[in-house]
């Protein structure tokens, strides 16, 4: 650096040079520390609580009970296992329906047409609507006495249904609500995938005489696989954790017969309605493991298929 004027390093320039040299962590660390403090610490605490009989108040004395909570929860066929089953039913039913309907709508929207903009606006509205308000809205529509759903059925001579207030109909009705709100999300993701596909494979199959279904099944769908997996993972995670529409329509404990009590609702109730922190933490840890295993299975299968 001969010929240049060397300035005495100020505190600022030293700091600036240090920040630039370590910019990778200078940039990433604040967010990582924030996430660490807000997630890792509580998660570790949850693991600890799941091994104690903490109850009533977190500040109250609690005993270390080892894996007793896990044995109790895993042996609980009254609340825990039915909640697991409901979580699977809700997630499976909702995500499968959303994928099928979403794929159909995305294929219809694929090629540009007049009025496309309006359809896109219309499908965006359920997606951004506040879930609690959505729950309340459907609660009115599905009200057995004054709701529009039964009025609609009566026009076709079909007897009134209990919908949300029925012990067996509540969960399917809520699956319907979830499908109404989140199918647009699947449509948008699949549409983004479809738009990024090149035309040639489809064109080649057409020249070879493949019909519309064959082109979809053997050309478009395999090319779209990674997008489909992304849609299933994103929707799956959110559906497993669904809370707002369940709690706002059925309230505490998922209704008087726990008819829509999924794992998330169950754990919330244990924590904040019964203050049973030990058991609640155990349920949450098991729930968390379940989500991770499911997501690993979905994404791992994809990698296995590709190689």
């Amino acid at each position: 650096m001969i010929g240049t004027v060397t300035t005495r390093p100020t505190a600022w320039s030293t700091y600036s040079a240090w920040a630039n040299r370590h910019r990778k962590w200078f940039f990433a660390a604040p967010a990582m520390i924030f996430v660490g403090l807000l997630i890792v610490v509580p998660l570790a605490w949850t693991v600890y609580l799941s091994l104690t009989d903490s109850q009533g108040s977190v500040r109250a004395e609690s005993k270390f009970v080892g894996i007793a909570n896990y044995l109790q929860v895993l042996g609980d066929t009254e609340r825990f296992w039915p909640a697991v089953l409901r979580t699977f039913t809700f997630t499976g039913g909702a995500v499968a329906t959303e994928m099928v309907l979403g794929m159909g709508i995305a294929l219809l929207l694929w090629r540009p047409f007049k009025g496309e903009k309006w359809v896109r606006v219309a499908i965006l509205l359920p997606l951004v609507a506040t879930p609690v308000a959505v729950g309340m809205m459907w609660r009115l529509i599905f009200d057995p006495n004054i709701g529009f759903a039964n009025q609609l059925l009566s026009w076709f001579g079909i007897p009134a249904q209990p919908w949300l207030s029925g012990q067996t109909t509540a969960l399917p009705t809520l699956i319907f609500v979830d499908v109404w709100q989140w199918t647009p999300m699947v449509v948008l993701i699949l549409l983004a995938g479809l738009t990024s596909l090149s035309e040639e494979p489809d064109e080649a199959a057409r020249v070879d005489g493949a019909n519309a279904w064959q082109r979809f099944r053997y050309v478009t769908l395999p090319l779209l696989r990674s997008t489909v997996v992304v849609a299933i993972v994103l929707r799956g995670i959110d559906a497993l954790k669904t809370f707002d529409i369940l709690y706002s329509t059925k309230g505490k404990g998922g209704g008087s017969f726990h008819e829509v009590e999924t794992l998330n609702v169950y754990a919330f109730g244990l924590s904040f309605d019964y203050n049973d922190y030990g058991i609640s933490s155990t349920v949450l840890i098991l729930f968390f493991l379940l989500i991770i295993v499911l997501m690993w299975m979905v994404t791992h299968r994809r990698k296995g298929d590709e190689s």
């Binding site: 609580l49 809370f243 998330n264 754990a267 949450l284 968390f288």
Partner: peptide, 18 residues
């Protein structure tokens, strides 16, 4: 690590946070 936050059930964070 950051994206883990999308997976964790929010309830499990609420008790410690509270």
């Amino acid at each position: 690590v950051v994206l883990m936050a999308r997976i964790i059930p929010g309830v499990s964070l609420l008790v410690p946070w509270y």
